[in-house]
């Protein structure tokens, strides 16, 4: 049952049409930031109002909706966005990546490969990858139009001369179909290889900055790098303490007052599904347990 005090999915129809038109142009020009007139949502900006507006524009009553915040389904932010659409759009919800048709995310791409029936909606705080190099919107827009991305390479190269490697580990910039440089939102660079050739549709919404951009399925997405310093996705040197996965992105947890640490999958659904399937890590009573 939807809450009848609201229009379907909260937003009025005219706003949804405007967002829908922006999404279509975003899909037609992969990686280009389409301006849109962001609306006030009944939640603070930091809670991903851009992603919420995109989700509101794409959801149908048949969807199964999942929300992850840094990989977890159970944070306050994830729980309230999920219940918001349960209430206003009457959608079913799930925490299982495989069962979801629309997944709204903050700062992660699920570990399980997404499929053609799925849509991934990113909450984006700063959509402009050139913003830290150039604060003026009129200038960054010109730089995109002229493909003037030299400064971005200079910044990455400064990293190399200072640290011996590219230190940027989140929101690592990518080039889409050889044309637009795009900010993939603050996902860890571990997730960057998943952006390209994905079977699902990827939509990016920035509420405060009023931008929507998109990656159609099977789009070429290349992380910026240099011939002598090729892009390397980060890789933890531990298996997950709970499910023993060696291929997932891990969070470091402090587990006791003595400063004991444990590494656990940031994608909680992935980790729980592996444990349910009998994969047990060393901090979970598995092999090598202390």
């Amino acid at each position: 049952m939807t809450d009848q005090a609201y229009n379907f999915a909260y937003l009025d129809e005219q706003t949804k049409r405007m967002i829908r038109r922006a999404i279509l142009k975003g899909l037609a020009i992969p990686g280009y930031q389409v301006p849109f007139a962001s609306r006030e949502m009944p939640m603070p900006y930091g809670w991903g109002t851009g992603g919420v507006q995109v989700s509101a524009a794409v959801l149908t009553p048949d969807d199964r909706f999942k929300v992850i915040d840094q990989g977890a389904d159970d944070t306050t932010n994830a729980v309230s966005i999920r219940s918001f659409f349960q209430r206003t759009a009457g959608v079913a919800t799930t925490t299982a990546t495989r069962e979801a048709t629309v997944i709204q995310t903050r700062h992660r791409i699920p570990e399980e490969p997404l499929t053609e029936g799925q849509i991934l909606v990113y909450q984006v705080p700063i959509p402009e990858p050139l913003r830290f190099l150039e604060p003026r919107e009129s200038e960054t827009r010109k730089m995109h139009s002229l493909e003037e991305y030299g400064l971005m390479h200079v910044k990455l190269y400064e990293d190399i001369s200072r640290h011996g490697h590219i230190a940027t580990s989140y929101a690592y910039p990518v080039k889409v179909e050889g044309r637009y440089v795009m900010d993939p939102s603050p996902i860890p660079k571990f997730d960057n290889p998943k952006l390209g050739d994905m079977a699902a549709i990827q939509l990016f919404g920035a509420g405060r900055e009023q931008r929507i951009y998109a990656l159609p399925p099977y789009t070429r997405v290349i992380s910026l790098d240099f011939e002598d310093h090729p892009f390397e996705p980060s890789k933890a040197d531990h298996p997950c303490g709970m499910c023993a996965a060696t291929d997932s992105y891990l969070d470091e947890l402090i587990v006791d007052d003595a400063g004991g640490r444990m590494f656990v999958c940031s994608d909680t659904d992935y980790c729980e599904a592996r444990q349910a399937a009998g994969h047990i890590g060393k901090d979970n009573g598995g092999k090598g347990a202390a």
């Binding site: 379907f8 129809e13 949804k16 049409r17 037609a28 794409v58 149908t60 549709i201 159609p216």
Partner: peptide, 19 residues
Amino acid sequence: DPAIAASYAFRTVMEAMAR
């Protein structure tokens, strides 16, 4: 039912444009 019908129709248009 405009809001509901438009949501289905848009998904169809979006899938068409995306693929």
